[in-house]
């Protein structure tokens, strides 16, 4: 039997935080604990959830990707431009664009040996600039090809269709991480890079794949963002990288790498959205929400440190066998 300390506890933090936050906001704001509000939150979390799941892959291989917000903005904008030129399905061009940005990040980190922060900071700046350049001067590009508001907002069995689509992608990410060789290798690389080389894998290629997945998910998030807004927003996405890191870390992704659970990350994203919506409904200044996000990031980091400390204490009593889960 696997001791709880090995994996369970860190993935329970996010659901527990959701419950605690909901209870708090429910007490403070009468309109919070209603079905309508719940559904509204459930309809809103998907952009952040996609970014956070992507970020999870990067954190799992002991990295960071601080370019995800800019990548989402660029890929969403290019997707809208393609959709206007070639029809609606071309909006999905956002995904290969994100994948390409992820490839650059992954190559720089995995192959050229850049530190993740430096590599993704460089691409953050370049991609942000590119998004402004392709649109002239940061103008929003309206989505002329068709009306996506219905897909993005009207609920079908609880969630808007694009929410279901995002959920499907996240489920795919779960299958990939848990059951496919690539996902297992990503976890393995995070917990013990030498082990990957010993079993015959190429560490740099796996690291690159992790950043590629991160980029592709950022691209998906960009497409979703464009569909929701009905326009490509080249300046959107600033601050999203922070929220995605917070969501991923609250969702139990270990900053030391090698531990991740997609559903817990989804719960982490939901927690961030619960806090934002709750603050919004309580009528505090929207700027206060920004402060709250900052506090959540730091708290998530402290939680990770605390958990590592506690679990290392606990696991001394159990002899751990495998180091990756």
């Amino acid at each position: 039997m696997r001791p709880l300390s090995d994996s369970g506890a860190r993935f329970l933090v996010a659901p527990a935080s959701i419950l605690a936050a909901s209870a708090l906001f429910g007490l403070a704001t009468p309109g919070f604990l209603t079905l309508d509000n719940g559904l509204s939150i459930a309809g809103q979390i998907w952009i952040l959830a996609l970014l956070a799941v992507g970020q999870m892959f990067a954190i799992t291989v002991r990295g960071f990707d601080i370019s995800v917000g800019a990548v989402a903005a660029l890929s969403g904008t290019l997707g809208v431009m393609a959709a206007n030129a070639f029809g609606m399905p071309a909006l999905l061009l956002a995904v290969p664009v994100g994948f390409a940005c992820g490839t650059v990040n992954g190559w720089l980190v995995g192959r050229a040996g850049f530190q993740p922060i430096v590599a993704t900071l460089g691409t953050l700046l370049a991609v942000k600039g590119l998004a402004l350049l392709v649109t002239g001067d940061g103008q929003a590009v309206p989505l002329a090809a068709g009306d996506t508001a219905g897909l993005a907002f009207d609920a079908v069995i609880g969630l808007p269709p694009l929410g279901w689509a995002a959920l499907a992608c996240i489920a795919l990410a779960h299958v990939l991480l848990r059951h496919l060789v690539l996902g297992r290798r990503i976890l393995m690389l995070g917990s013990n890079p030498e082990a990957v080389a010993l079993v015959g894998g190429a560490p740099w290629r796996i690291e690159m794949s992790a950043y590629q997945l991160c980029g592709a998910f950022a691209g998906l998030a960009g497409a979703l963002m464009a569909a929701r807004a009905g326009a490509g927003l080249p300046t959107e996405g600033a601050g999203m990288e922070l929220q995605s890191i917070a969501a991923a870390v609250i969702g139990g992704t270990a900053l030391a790498g090698g531990r991740a659970n997609v559903w817990a990350v989804l719960a982490g994203a939901a927690f961030v959205q619960v806090v934002l919506t709750g603050l919004n409904l309580s009528g505090v200044s929207p700027f206060f929400a920004q402060i709250a996000v900052g506090a959540v990031i730091i708290a998530s980091g402290l939680m990770d440190m605390g958990l590592r400390f506690l679990l290392s204490r606990l696991s001394r009593t159990f002899r751990q066998q495998g180091t990756f889960q």
Binding site: F64, I66, I117, G239, L242, I245, V249, L255, Q290, I291, V293, G294, A295, I297, I298, S300, G301
Partner: peptide
């Protein structure tokens, strides 16, 4: 990264 991005937001 986490600490300074957090204080940035705050």
């Amino acid at each position: 990264v986490i600490a300074t991005l957090g204080t940035l937001m705050i």
